[in-house]
Design a protein around this nucleic acid. Structure first.
Length: 279
DNA sequence: ACTCAGGTATCCT
DNA sequence: AGGATACCTGAG
């Protein structure tokens, strides 16, 4: 049992921010998150006033000990980083981005598992987020280790490398099944070492990731951002490109946010999608 | 029934 | 280099 609260932490927003696919609201004030082979239950147990115009923030109860929090989840949620500084370079006249950053306050870039990110974002291409989640759940149920009541870990590269294409086909992967197969074999054989390539710079890392079939520039950037915490990575998907067209005349001034453009990307993505939903 | 989805590989020019 | 096209299948 560990109590976690910060004006810069909003579990609901993180769950819907598109960076993670196994983080769901399961009841009114309850969330469940599966990361690799760990299950985390989160309950919102209260609210506090932040003392400024941003209003309230939530207080959460995590079903782990303080020790478990300190050795894993603290880093996972990137709790040692001050996220407010990322909004400081937004020009005063960029009303859109100011609104996006305000709206997105509480989102953090999670430090997720490299392998899980690789497979998840290969699956993500040309799929809606609900469809991505369905595929990942099927894949986990079929190939992942049972880690709780009806709960399954994300499958390991070893298990997936041994899975046949027809078995993979049961997971609604479509034409992505061979991609997953290829990725699993490359990782398991050591042809791609997901840890080793972390030594490379951002461009070098993208190059390595794109050696995997089904991994293009967008997926590679997502894996870099969410699996390697390369917060300078700026994945451009249909949403981002739509927002850039609409609000920046087709060119986003990424140079203003050197070193952390990925955080800004999250704000634009989340704000863009959430406001579009309301329409 | 029908369109579209957090793209990528492949085949052109 | 840059543009056009096919691609599995679920969700709305």
């Amino acid at each position: 049992m560990f109590i976690l609260e910060s004006a810069q932490l909003d579990m609901g927003k993180i769950a819907d921010s598109g960076q993670i696919f196994r983080f769901n609201k399961i009841a009114e004030a309850e969330y469940e998150l599966i990361a690799s082979d760990k299950i985390l239950k989160i309950e919102k147990i209260g609210e506090k006033n932040s003392g400024n115009i941003d209003g309230k923030y939530d207080v959460y109860k995590l079903d782990v000990s303080e020790e478990e929090y300190n050795i894993f989840w603290k880093n996972y949620f990137d709790m040692d980083t001050d996220y407010d500084i990322f909004s400081k370079n937004i020009p005063a006249n960029d009303e859109f981005l100011k609104a996006a950053a305000r709206f997105s306050r509480g989102i953090r870039i999670l430090k997720q598992d490299k392998w899980e990110m690789l497979i998840s974002f290969i699956i993500s291409q040309r799929k809606s987020i609900p469809a991505i989640k369905t595929s990942i759940e099927k894949l986990s149920e079929k190939f992942g280790e049972k880690i709780g009541d009806e709960k399954y870990a994300f499958p390991t590269s070893k298990t997936l490398s041994r899975a046949g294409l027809s078995e993979l086909g049961d997971c609604s992967l479509g034409y992505r099944a061979p991609y997953i197969h290829d990725a699993a074999k490359k990782v398991e054989s050591g042809e791609i070492d997901l840890e080793k390539i972390d030594e490379k710079d951002d461009i070098g890392l993208l190059d390595e990731l794109m050696k995997i079939k089904g991994v293009g520039i967008k997926v590679a950037n997502c894996v870099a951002l969410f699996g390697y915490h390369r917060i300078a990575s700026f994945p451009i998907d249909v949403w981002i490109s739509r927002m850039i067209d609409r609000h920046y005349g087709g060119r986003f001034p990424i140079e203003l946010y050197e070193g952390y453009a990925g955080i800004i990307q999250q704000y634009i993505f989340f704000y863009g999608r959430e406001t579009e939903k309301i329409k």
